[in-house]
Amino acid sequence: MQLFLQQFPIVIRSLNVGFLQTLKLFFVTLIGAIPLGLVIAFGSMSRFKPVSVFSRVLVWIVRGSPLMIQLLIIFYFPGIVLHKPIWGGGEAGRFAAASAAFILNYACYFSEIYRGGIQSVPIGQEEAGLVLGMTRAQIFFHVKLSQVIKRIVPPMSNEIITLVKDTSLARIIALQEIIWAGQAFMKSSMGISGAIWPLFFTGVYYLACNGILTLLFGWVERKLGYYKV
């Protein structure tokens, strides 16, 4: 017990640093993937065939292969195959590569959620807007968007909670996120070696983070609950 109490503050400090990296990857992914997903969604719904085929094939490849493989390919491919290491060295380079892989991966998942949301708005809403002389942009922003958001909050919250946990995959390219930090104590880190509990303890961080997200999404759902679609 005494040993545990001695180790605890050291471990927490180290896990905090790792978790900060986890959070950074999480937010960067969201900031990139939320708008990019919309672009891909419009791409797959495009009436211009090459665009829609390209978007759908992209979504198929990204959703159809493991994120871990995508991370490895995006990180190593430019350097090993093209002999152009674009990501730079060190933690910053690994973070950039991880962000690119996560943004692309999550944008594809988000795009399918958006597409489902947009297509589930009844055609009558668009027609009502048209006969009232609205432009297509006005119909999208003033009529459909709010209904789409209301419909996609539950599936998006699912996906975003998964993202928090998926960030741990970035360990495969040695990004020093929280699991990486926890695992380090099994070998040796900051004078502690052979300790497995720090790794288990990382679960508390994920739980706390997802608890906050669950509350947040619940609040958003309640906020949008004033009308029914």
Binding site: A128, Q138, S146, K228
Partner: peptide, 29 residues
């Protein structure tokens, strides 16, 4: 198309707006 108005069989009101806002929205835009 503004020369014509159309009332639909299934109403097609905008669910996120009040009755008043439904009437005002297009005119305001």
């Amino acid at each position: 198309r503004l020369r014509f108005g159309l009332v639909f069989q299934s109403f097609n009101l905008f669910p996120q707006y009040t009755a008043l806002k439904n009437v005002m929205l297009a005119v305001e835009l």
